[in-house]
């Protein structure tokens, strides 16, 4: 009797938690939509892609609201960071799992976990006082897409490494034993058995890393230069959507503020697309 009473209590408690967590996400989405509505009505969705530049003003008629350079900045920084961090992350997870002696592997794993725990402002501050001046000496102005990509890849690296590491642990032991019995070399085992088996885990890690790269604000704000312009090269400054919201939010009123919510909505759509992609990938892998 007592036991089932406890179960009931637990059940409702857990349901409550689930509803609360779900509600928060839904409320944020609804709130974003509601706040975006004035801009969507006054400015119209198409102007966010066709206006000559981003020079926001409080009223739709005075301002210019082109989000494309910032969308490009976000996508470029994100793609660059993931492109650098993925091979590094998977490589270091492989090292950790298959090559490093156990003691070193444990120490290395702790180190990566530490890297994941460093607050983003710390990365940003380091980027601002070390990385940016370094690039500036070589290719002024220094605050650039490149700086953003480098900082972001360091930040994304631990996510990808840890998820890849977990994915490698999930490779069934029998497969490895089988490979050993066949006399495959270590690299042969990794390439022929471990990587294909862990594929969905690796992709999930990549997508999680991409999500972090999209959402990162502080570090990017500090090193990217924040000029709203299509970058011609790696050394040009860019502004990401998140940095734009952080820079202008406190000062924006009326349609400008609402336009920032539209950019937030765009970010949310991008993240939803990513989550959907991750879902599809893992489901296809589960079936296949």
């Amino acid at each position: 009797m007592y036991r089932s009473y406890r179960d009931q209590w637990l059940l409702w408690w857990i349901r409550g938690c689930a509803v609360l967590a779900g509600m928060i996400v839904l409320l944020i989405a609804v709130f974003l939509l509601l706040e975006s509505l004035p801009a969507l009505r006054h400015i119209g969705l198409s102007r966010f892609f066709t206006d000559p530049s981003w020079h926001p003003a409080a009223t739709a008629a005075q301002g210019r609201f082109n989000l494309v350079p910032m969308l490009a900045g976000t996508l470029l920084a994100m793609t660059g960071a993931v492109a650098i961090a993925t091979p590094l992350g998977i490589g270091s997870a492989l090292f950790c799992h298959f090559y490093a002696p156990p003691l070193l592997a444990t120490a290395y794993r702790r180190l990566i976990e530490l890297l994941a725990g460093i607050p983003s402002v710390v990365y940003g501050f380091w980027g601002l006082v070390v990385l940016v001046p370094l690039i500036a000496r070589w290719q002024p102005p220094g605050a650039s897409l490149l700086a953003g990509i480098l900082i972001l890849s360091v930040m994304v690296l631990p996510t990808i490494t840890l998820v890849a590491d977990a994915a490698f642990s999930n490779v069934p032991r029998e497969y490895l034993h089988g490979a050993a019995a066949l006399g495959l070399s270590r690299w042969g085992t990794i390439r022929g058995i471990v990587l294909p088996t862990a594929r969905s885990g690796l992709l999930t890690g990549m997508i999680l890393g991409t999500g972090r790269a999209i959402g990162e604000t502080m570090a990017v704000l500090m090193v990217c230069g924040n000029v709203v312009r299509m970058p011609d090269s790696l050394f040009d400054p860019v502004r990401t959507i998140t940095a734009n919201i952080a820079l202008e939010m406190a000062y924006a009123v009326d349609d400008h503020r609402s336009a920032l919510f539209v950019s937030g909505l765009l970010l949310m759509v991008m993240v939803i697309a990513l989550v959907a992609a991750a879902d599809t990938v893992s489901r296809r892998d589960g079936n296949g």
């Binding site: 601002l128 006082v129 940016v132 001046p133 500036a136 002024p140 102005p141 220094g142 605050a143 704000l221 500090m222 230069g225 924040n226 000029v227 709203v228 400054p237 502004r239 952080a246 820079l247």
Partner: peptide, 22 residues
């Protein structure tokens, strides 16, 4: 025509202090 856009004063000072041509 800006090369770097910054938020607060401290960030501006750090940016100029880190770039001798700023």
């Amino acid at each position: 025509r800006a090369d770097v856009v910054i938020g607060d004063n401290e960030q501006g000072i750090k940016t100029v202090a880190g770039n001798s041509n700023a």
